[in-house]
């Protein structure tokens, strides 16, 4: 039990330091005595952090909805023909640099939040899609046959047996893509979407290491705490009582 208290305490402490301007200034002055201006003052870090979280949550929610429904569609008998095409396309999407997607999306939807969300979704849908397909394909044939045999409709088979059985694998995909998004969302700054990328970019432009470190550290702590949260949720929902054992 005690083991589980350490990570949230650590993350909590890190966040308090990062998001409280006075505390952060003290720490940064200690770390970078040579830098004259250690604090990015135009926008408080806590606001950028909030923007970042919103970007990650919105893009991950869309990627999850898209990935899971695409994965479900291509594992149904009518959609099976598209399985390889969809898998190929989503792999291709991940080889596409997010910055390039951003560049293509801006002329279509303008600057700001929306092109960033598009880039993040395109980039992070692959793990969710792939895991949904893998989870569905791993379900033993006899189990879906038995579900059919006792009179489930195709929709009931999906919700009573297929999705619960592949939930664990799908959740792992969502976890991966959320973590990817936390890092990738920093590029949103270049098209005016805000987020922690703003401080990092400002630091790079002005050659100010303190800016870069404060933005990167906040993103890293966000990624680590979300990862920890997902791990906790997984153990809560998938083990040990309701463990899927074969």
């Amino acid at each position: 039990m005690k083991r589980h208290i350490v990570p949230p305490l650590l993350f909590g402490l890190a966040l308090v330091v990062l998001l409280n301007a006075d505390l952060l200034e003290v720490v940064l002055r200690q770390l970078f005595p040579a830098v004259r201006e250690v604090m990015y003052t135009r926008i408080p870090l806590i606001d950028l952090f909030r923007e970042h979280v919103v970007m990650v949550l919105v893009s991950s929610a869309i990627a999850t909805a898209l990935g899971v429904s695409l994965g479900v569609c291509v594992t149904r008998p009518p959609g099976r023909d598209f399985l390889t095409v969809v898998q190929g396309l989503s792999s291709l999407a991940q080889t596409f640099p997010p910055v390039a997607v951003l560049a293509l999306a801006v002329p279509a939807v303008g600057f700001g939040f929306r092109p960033t969300i598009i880039a993040l979704v395109v980039y992070s849908v692959l793990p969710i899609l792939n895991n949904t397909i893998a989870g569905m394909e791993a379900i033993p044939r006899e189990l879906t046959d038995a579900s059919r045999g006792i009179g489930m409709t195709p929709l009931q088979i999906l919700f009573f047996s297929e999705l619960p059985l592949s939930a664990r694998v799908i959740a792992a995909g969502v976890r991966t893509s959320v973590i990817i998004n936390v890092g990738t969302a920093t590029i949103g700054a270049v098209v005016g979407a805000g987020g922690l990328g703003v401080v990092i970019v400002a630091g790079l432009v002005r050659d100010n290491i303190a800016f870069v470190v404060s933005g990167a550290a906040a993103a890293a702590v966000l990624a680590l705490s979300l990862d920890w949260l997902f791990g906790r949720l997984e153990t809560l929902f998938f083990s040990p009582r309701a463990r899927v054992a074969r």
């Binding site: 033993p140 189990l143 038995a146 579900s147 045999g149 009179g151 489930m152 059985l165």
Partner: peptide
Amino acid sequence: VEQLRRSIGYVIQSVGLLPH
């Protein structure tokens, strides 16, 4: 077809209990 199947008990070798 679903109504038909629900009115017929079906037992198979692999049983097919839902593990969750």
